[in-house]
Design a binder for these strands. Structure first.
Lengths: 186, 186
DNA sequence: GTCTATACACCGATAGAC
DNA sequence: GTCTATCGGTGTATAGAC
């Protein structure tokens, strides 16, 4: 393959930034070309499936980041609480303290028929499973663990919506700070 | 004025349904004409400001419904807990147990410059004030009341995102059921 | 692999008949 | 007040040169 003007990493970062700012329908090819530094035809060379393929690629690369930065620490060393504190810091960073949106939110605003919906569905269920698992390891019984995992997830997603809607990131910062206590009790 | 093919109520219902399904950018004039039974030009006769005016009108009429169905009961008769139980039922109905989205979420996915952002901002702050007020009336001190109001609001918004993303409305139904306890403590 | 140029559908918006 | 017809612009997508 010939030399690439923009490498994979830069490319995905540019695309992701646009989708995370303007949403699924708001992310136009024009905006995507501006953010990546590649022209339309070049984007189609990288993603023959067009915008729909870009959407899937953006979600996949974002899921890889979430896995690495947020979920992997849950299986790392330390007590459940220590691992959750690591996750808490990673969540704060990943969402830039509430400034950056969640693609689970943006990409779920699509017709049921849209292929991305299935990816989002599985990804969020997996996130919940990881949280449930660490709560179980802390000695919380399964059904309570699941309930608390849902509470924590809703608190994050909801406070992200609030941050955007009210232009106030304080609730998000608080939810994240309280994340370990919310999952394990205090 | 001549006879209207579609009355105000039917019109707003149709428009709202489209925006609440497809979001701000996804709601095209074509979809809006199909949902309302009015042609493009007729919609522009009703809303000379075009789509942007429709967006504002949809939000305003939705806020009126929220006021009437959800927030007014908070100032009605009964104990704070009784009023919150009324609100809880109204919230469940308004969001169709998690099937219908929240415009605070959808309409906040817009550039900061978009006029609708300011309306959403004020509306959500008002919602929070109403919740804070009833918590105060139940004897909870101001700062705790505010915090609990934020928790409840995030739980609702977050579980709506979860309902859409995972196609599972159980977390939403639970959050709504627990709403009074979450605001007042149990 | 990237580019310019272009095809064609759909977007929001308007003119003018009825 | 509603309609059909149409405008200019932008959307996604592609052809073909380099």
């Amino acid at each position: 393959m010939a030399t690439r003007k923009v490498n994979e990493d830069q490319l995905m970062r540019g695309l992701t930034q646009v989708f995370r700012t303007f949403g699924l329908e708001g992310a136009s090819l024009t905006k995507l070309t501006e953010a990546t530094g590649l022209q339309r035809a070049s984007l189609y060379h990288r993603f023959p499936g067009g915008k729909e393929e870009m959407v899937v690629a953006v979600l996949q690369s974002t899921l890889a980041l979430i896995q690495e930065q947020i979920l992997d620490p849950l299986n790392g060393p330390g007590s459940p609480r220590q691992r959750l504190e690591k996750m808490s810091r990673a969540v704060a960073q990943f969402y830039a303290n509430g400034e950056k949106a969640c693609l689970f939110d943006y990409f779920s605003i699509a017709p049921d028929s849209h292929p991305i919906r299935e990816h989002v569905n599985k990804a969020m269920r997996y996130w919940l499973e990881c949280l449930t698992k660490v709560a179980c390891e802390a000695g919380i019984k399964k059904s309570d663990a699941r309930r608390r995992a849902e509470d924590v997830t809703a608190a994050i997603q909801g406070s992200l919506v609030m941050a955007r809607a009210m232009n106030d990131r304080r609730p998000f910062r608080r939810m994240v700070k309280e994340l370990p206590d919310r999952l394990l009790g205090d």
